[in-house]
Amino acid sequence: MHWTPRRERFRALLAGDRCLHPGSVYDAISARIAEDLGFEIGMFAGSIGSMSVIGAPDLITLTLSEFAQQAYRINRAGNLPLLVDADHGYGNALNVKRTVEELESAGVAGLTIEDTDLPQPFGTVGKTRLIPIAEGIGKMKAALAGRQDPTLAVIGRTSAVQVTGIEDAIARARAYEAAGVDAMFFTGIKEKAELEAIHTAVRLPIILGGVAAGALRDRDYLSSVGVRICLQGHQPFAAAVQATYATLKALREGADPDALPGVAPADLMKRVTREDDHRRWMQDWLAG
């Protein structure tokens, strides 16, 4: 498949003047639903990848190949530009280069590489640690070297605001900007002053990994301070888990299958599985 056009659309959104909320997706059907509903961007998080693919919490036990394969399944289901959370790049700078190569081949439009010390080192349970800035720069350079399609967006990511403070977050963002990344992704921002300080210091488009309630959820305000993408969390997957649990529990307890609440109607199932297209293809190619 030819992935460049959706990457160009993603870059145009980063270069725009509006803050967008991406649709959190985890498989082919959820990606189609997000696209059908008009989301401009899909977001596939590492945590959701771990839960949806191997049923494990977000502790970096998912492998690169498992994550890339699921990203490919999401991408081939439609035409939604997909931003993915590539965590720490699954290792050191050499692994980061390989990560970019695999995810580019899987069709993603943008990917984030973070500077968190992952997986959790021995003796640090309960503590979030960051790698040194110099190592983070090396990872960003490796990510850029691994990119073959120049339209793929490589995004630096840091949680320094909540771990080491705003000054360190700005220093890391400036360093990754100088290395050549296309945008910066921040987590842990809780105050307007923090965001405004970052906006003043960094020229790159800003992506936020969720924010506190109040002014930081005002899209007009976020747009004015350089935020182009702001995550809203990953409730769709949690809602799907709840619905599946409730449905199976009801069936196990003897509920009438025809009277279950919350089941997608037949017309919705046909729409998200593109049944009309498949029926047309069968008629064109198999009818004889």
Rank of each mutant, 00 (worst) to 15 (best):
T4P: 06
R9E: 13
R9S: 01
R9L: 07
L14A: 04
G16N: 08
R18C: 09
C19L: 06
S24V: 06
S24K: 06
D36H: 13
I41W: 15
I41N: 10
G46P: 02
M51Y: 11
G55H: 12
P57S: 05
P57Q: 05
A71I: 03
I74Y: 11
A77M: 14
N79S: 14
A86Q: 02
D87Y: 10
G89V: 11
Y90T: 05
G91Q: 10
G91M: 07
N95Y: 03
V96T: 14
R98H: 10
V100M: 09
E101L: 13
E102V: 08
L103Y: 14
S105I: 06
G110F: 00
L111I: 13
L111G: 11
I113E: 02
P119Q: 15
P119H: 14
P121K: 10
T124R: 10
R129Q: 13
R129T: 06
I133G: 06
A134W: 12
E135T: 08
G136M: 13
K139N: 08
A142N: 13
A145L: 15
G146Y: 05
R147P: 11
P150N: 01
L152I: 09
A153V: 09
V154F: 01
G156Q: 08
T164S: 15
E167K: 09
A169H: 03
A171I: 03
R172P: 00
A173P: 02
A173G: 14
R174V: 07
Y176L: 14
A178N: 11
A178D: 15
A178I: 04
D182K: 13
F185R: 00
T187A: 14
T187R: 02
E191H: 12
L195W: 09
V202W: 00
I207S: 04
V211I: 01
V211L: 01
A212G: 10
A215P: 12
R217D: 04
R217N: 09
S223V: 00
S223Y: 02
S223D: 01
S224E: 05
R228N: 06
L231N: 15
H234P: 08
A238Y: 10
A239W: 06
A239L: 11
V241E: 11
A243W: 03
A246P: 00
L248W: 13
K249S: 13
L251K: 02
R252N: 03
E253N: 10
P257T: 02
P257C: 00
L260T: 12
G262V: 03
A264M: 14
P265Q: 12
P265L: 02
L268G: 01
M269K: 13
K270T: 12
R271F: 13
D276G: 03
H278M: 15
R279A: 14
Q283F: 09
A287V: 01
